[in-house]
Nucleic acid binder design. Structure first.
Length: 697
RNA sequence: GCGCCCGUAGCUCAAUUGGAUAGAGCGCAUGGCUACGAACCAUGAGGUUGGGAGUUCGAUUCUCUCCGGGCGCACCA
């Protein structure tokens, strides 16, 4: 709603500036004034124009205010401060539209369709956990960011495919195979039995760390790993079968863990298929033809196919020959030269990780000319089907890949590799694809020294002084995702039991789970992406203040008002989601829907007295605005902020206005409408974050 | 050495992407429940935004520089 008005305002202003000042494509910034009394929009426009027009900002602002003309939904413009133009919108009109969940002047279109629908399918890749050990809190941040971004895109009207890339051919899986076979002396059948155990991934977690220690004890042990790797690559032997068994079992566990958080995937492309279906061969040919890859005949990278490293300019790479010609000291110039090269194909002819990634991303954009085979892999309780890549696929399958826009949720440590892939696409002449390739980069989750100590790790004095310590799967150092979720559920259950012992046990555990998910997802979303999360149980387990449960609680309180009053919130505002259908029905039949008239809105929202409630309404109207902002900046944290602000404003409102005991019927109806609208928006906002609202708290 | 990121209240983080008096949560102090259940609300203390220079009408935000911390720079994935 708010977003719609803002767009209208900007359009009008742009037209006005063109007409009156002959200014094309002026950059029009719209803000919110620092205080609600000053209006709903603030325009610092006059400051920009001051230089161009050689007049004082204040004078320009005054001129604009006089000549701007009428805009539907906007009441007036006024000059403030040194030259701000503050805009006051028609409160009653916005409130009525919001209660009706429609645009001010529209024929019942939903507010979120105000976001311009872009063309083409979007692909979001997230999670991508190596299938050799349990998922940990770092993976949780990735998956929660990715899943929330998917929800944001879908809210904005985009069609999205969710992919989870599985690296099942690397050394990590081989390491666990080595662990089972050489350290544990397990047979294929025994491993099969273990793989069926409920938390097989935990077993692998410990084993993986033990194998790493075993390698460190004696370098000769690394030969065992090499043999395993070769066997896996060759295929058709027991080692390869065990590797497949392990990676599939661990992958299933990852899907289960993520399912606990309402995170689902559409397709699981695996590295094994990238290899077996010869994706690389197709990519290699094109890359050679385009001159992206060049053969290095000498020096350190002799015999390799190399690519210019991302960020280095074309022409700056000196060949050893030219370097030698201008400088006698060949050793030094050689180093400078080769630093700018990234090896894609090794001298033994095998392709490295980045090469496979280039091929994969060509496939994503439909530029490779090859496709995966597809098999059904995992069926979610809601019947949603998750597919996996295979060499020999089913004949009937959905169409994956060939998208127009991609987002890769991968932590910041991979940014150089990501840039290399983008550069390769550019080198191939696919600039439009490269432009729509977004590395959704975020910082890692680390542990506070206190947290590490709680987990029983002994720390060096140096580590104790740090503000955080990086987790390490190789060392088995970290907090497992399922453990954290279990701890959160237990903690929530304690709280629920202390207040709602009257409820049946199944319902209490359902509520506890919802609270735990709310706490966890909110926790991972409230930090902005470039901020390292120093994980601490005390903060992650908190249910008070700036947390998910706080926002959930506000929505529950809103619901409670209607429950206690024997009322249906959908009779006061147009509902969203499954609850909305009855009100649609009742509206069609013309039955009692308790509408607030424009006059009443005017009366209750006007002036100083109405300001604080109006602030709540205004915040409630900004959901689609915030969604656009999140999508445009690839930053879901704004959504968490919005949810918190909405909840906070509602709690103040709730505390200040006893609604059910309100004697004035009209005022009571207005207050109930306020609660109904905020409840609807809170449910909506939390849903975008993957958080549901419990029946009671 | 090169590249990217971070430094804001005691702690953990925001700041509408260059805007008006830098805001929240936690913690601390004080007060508020026969309530639409306090997982809440109210009040208070707490800041030279790491230091310095520059650009600008205006800088936490942009540029440069220094200080401190993190991460990347493999014929690993």
């Amino acid at each position: 709603m708010y977003h719609f008005l803002e767009c209208r305002l900007v359009d009008h202003l742009r037209e006005f500036l063109r007409r009156s000042y002959n200014l094309e494509d002026a950059n029009i910034v719209v803000e919110q004034p620092p205080k609600i009394e000053l209006g709903e929009f603030a325009l610092p426009l006059a400051f920009d124009l001051a230089r161009k027009l050689r007049k004082s900002p204040r004078k320009i602002a005054e001129e604009i205010v006089i000549n701007i003309g009428e805009i539907p939904g906007i009441d007036k413009f006024e000059v403030a401060g040194a030259g701000y133009i503050n805009v006051r919108i028609n409160r009653a009109a916005l409130a009525a539209a919001l209660a009706n969940d429609s645009l001010p002047d529209s024929d019942g279109k939903k507010s979120n369709s105000a976001v311009p629908a872009s063309t083409g399918k979007v692909l979001v890749e997230h999670s991508s956990i190596n299938p050799n050990k349990a998922a940990h809190i770092g993976h949780l941040r990735n998956a929660i960011l990715g899943d929330t971004f998917v929800r944001l895109l879908r809210f904005a009207g985009r069609e999205v495919d969710v992919q989870n890339y599985i690296d099942n051919t690397g050394a990590q899986v081989a390491d666990v195979v080595v662990g089972f076979v050489h350290l544990e002396r397990k047979s294929m059948v025994e491993i099969q039995a273990l793989a069926a155990s409920p938390r097989f991934d935990y077993l692998c977690w410990d084993l993986y760390a033990r194998v790493a220690t075993w390698y460190a004890e004696d370098k000769a042990n690394l030969q065992t790993r090499l043999a395993a790797l070769h066997a896996i690559e060759q295929g058709n032997n027991e080692t390869a079968a065990i590797a497949e068994l392990i990676s599939i079992a661990v992958l299933k566990r990852h899907l289960e863990t993520m399912e606990r958080l309402d995170i689902e995937y559409d397709f699981l492309p695996r590295e094994s298929e990238i290899l077996h279906l010869h994706f690389w061969d197709a990519a290699f040919t094109k890359l050679k033809e385009a001159g992206v890859l060049t053969y290095e005949p000498q020096g350190k990278n002799k015999g390799c196919w190399v690519m210019r490293r991302a960020g280095t300019l074309a022409g700056t790479v000196k060949t050893p020959a030219s370097a030698a010609a201008e400088d006698g000291d060949k050793a030094i110039t050689d180093m400078i030269t080769e630093e700018d090269q990234k090896v894609i194909v090794r001298s033994n002819g095998t392709v490295g990780y980045v090469g496979k990634d280039i091929a994969y991303h060509m496939w994503k954009f439909g530029l490779l000319g090859r496709d995966f085979g597809y098999r059904k892999f995992f069926r979610y309780p809601n019947t949603h089907e998750c597919w996996i890549s295979s060499t020999d696929g089913e004949t009937e399958h959905p169409h994956f890949g060939d998208v127009t826009e991609i987002y890769n949720v991968i932590d910041a440590r991979q940014s150089e590799a990501q840039s290399t892939v983008i550069e390769a696409l550019r080198g191939l002449g696919h600039n439009e694809a490269a432009d729509r390739f977004t590395h959704f980069s975020y910082e890692m989750v680390a542990l506070t020294p206190r947290c590490a100590a709680e987990l029983g790790y002994t720390l060096s004095e140096e580590d104790k002084a740090r503000s955080w310590i990086e987790v390490s799967g190789r060392k088995g150092f970290g907090v497992k995702a399922d453990d954290l979720l279990d701890a959160l559920i237990a903690s929530a259950e304690k709280e629920v039991n202390s207040r709602h012992l009257e409820l049946p046990g199944s319902e209490r555990s359902q509520i506890s789970t919802q609270i735990a998910i709310g706490a966890l997802r909110y926790f991972m979303l409230k930090y902005t992406k470039p901020s390292v999360i120093a994980f601490d149980f005390k903060e992650a387990l908190s249910f008070e203040g700036d947390t998910g449960p706080y926002a959930q609680y506000a929505a529950v309180r809103a619901s409670n008002i209607f429950r206690k009053g024997g009322l249906n919130p959908d009779d006061f505002c147009r509902g969203s989601g499954p609850g909305g259908s009855e009100s649609d029905a009742s509206r069609r039949q013309g039955t009692a829907v308790h509408r607030v008239s424009p006059d009443e809105f005017d009366k209750f929202l006007a002036g100083d007295a109405g300001n604080s409630v109006w602030e709540l309404w205004l915040a409630a109207s900004q959901t689609s605005q915030v969604v656009s902002q999140c999508v445009a900046t690839t930053e879901p944290a704004y959504m968490a902020k919005h949810a918190f602000r909405l909840a906070q404003l509602f709690n103040v409102f709730y505390h200040r206005h006893p609604i059910l005991s309100e004697p004035d019927e009209k005022r009571k109806r207005f207050l109930l409408t306020t609660a109904a609208v905020v409840r609807r928006e809170l449910i909506r906002v939390l849903a975008v974050m993957g958080i549901s609202v419990p029946a009671a708290m």
